[in-house]
Nucleic acid binder design. Sequence first.
DNA 1: CCTAATAATTAGGTATACCTAAATCAAGGA
DNA 2: TCCTTGATTTAGGTATACCTAATTATTAGG
Lengths: 231, 231
Amino acid sequence: MPPRRQANRNSESVDNYLKAILSLGGVEHRRVTSTALAGHLGVAPASVTNMLQKLASAPTPMVEYERHRGVQLSADGKRRALEIVRHHRLIETFLYEVLDYPIEEVHEEAERLEHFISERFEERIAAKLGHPRIDPHGHSIPTMEGEMTEPNSVPLTEVLQGGTFVIDSVSDRDAHTLRELKASGIRPGAQLRVRKNTPAEGYSVSIGRSSRAVGLSREAAGDIRLVPSTK
Amino acid sequence: MPPRRQANRNSESVDNYLKAILSLGGVEHRRVTSTALAGHLGVAPASVTNMLQKLASAPTPMVEYERHRGVQLSADGKRRALEIVRHHRLIETFLYEVLDYPIEEVHEEAERLEHFISERFEERIAAKLGHPRIDPHGHSIPTMEGEMTEPNSVPLTEVLQGGTFVIDSVSDRDAHTLRELKASGIRPGAQLRVRKNTPAEGYSVSIGRSSRAVGLSREAAGDIRLVPSTK
DNA sequence: CCTAATAATTAGGTATACCTAAATCAAGGA
DNA sequence: TCCTTGATTTAGGTATACCTAATTATTAGG
Ligand SMILES: [Mn+2]
Ligand SMILES: [Mn+2]
Ligand SMILES: [Mn+2]
Ligand SMILES: [Mn+2]
């Protein structure tokens, strides 16, 4: 019979806009510009304006929008965005832990499935995984109640002094970069010593106890986030 | 960037039309009428006509369609339909075996997810499950190559003589009926003795070695398929 | 062989979510 | 303050996938 997925609220597109606003605006709710969203989502700026107007003028608006001044998530919008992020990261963890996906392939699959799983599915994989708080890239998984801790980590490209760090997370965006990082032993939790990290000199690190220098592209370096070594 | 799911070919709607044509026309490719499809899919007959015309006039047509004479799947259409059925039944098996879903809830979740999983996901759950050939309802799972064996089972309502049978499958369509069947111990593989099965007298059976009579609604009876007991 | 009833198609709309091109706005520098 | 320019929005389209109402085919009965 008619499964009919309803308009606005809850479509795959809407979900992706909300996630993008959360990601660009952070949990501090910085206003996000149409152009930034257009870039992030890969759609034309005009399409963004259109969608924002719809989202803002819904009966229970998902965003707070003012012409020419960008958007912010409403409380409802933030709740939904965090739910999708939870789906995404739980799915990634599940694919990695239970279905033995290579880490560089989990993101793409999760990006699709996050919109279509039920609350039951979410609950079941969370239980199966022991209610994990961190996904395979090192990103924190929002709780069922929509709480998410922000990392106090810093991109490798922005670390000022050299020294020893622990890898907090790696970006999930680019499968190719991720495959390279994996090959060099760069994964969340590993120890990393910064040798060079300036645009001029390039990027070079050592992993774990090894003293071997590992060179990194600018892009790869920007995809690694570090926290100070506690040891 | 642009994940852009492509037109026609491969949309969730198209998948559902192809599955419906397969289901109504059987693997023997009986022609299927627009009205039958409309009923099965819960859409207006006019919508069906429209879709069939598009599917039939695509560069590589998924169906063979003639005005006023119904449709049949093309070889391509059949391949796709069987792939979706494989997805559906593997997902059901996975939800049941790995995620401990109650049997009456697997269908709805599978109905959505079947359209969105990757080939990798399909392959991984199949491997995890040991390449099962039958889903939790007793339906056979098409192979990766698109082979599916048709059951030679008969609905309980169409069994002529009484006697002892083995339950081949139960319908997955109605969660409510399924819950009731489960409560009576009616599941694929179980032994079933037919006591009464006429519209006039109603439907009554015994399960396993028990001699207790279990009454069934007409609808429930039609949802049970039997094969002769080999013992 | 004609005619109703029924099945199916056509015609004309809606909503979502995109796009391009043409306005228009906001802000910073002169 | 005014003007230029880049950002944003408006205007006008496209494609998918639905719907209702009107029209046309098919077919079975008389
Ligand atoms: Mn990801
Ligand atoms: Mn997504
Ligand atoms: Mn099913
Ligand atoms: Mn489906």
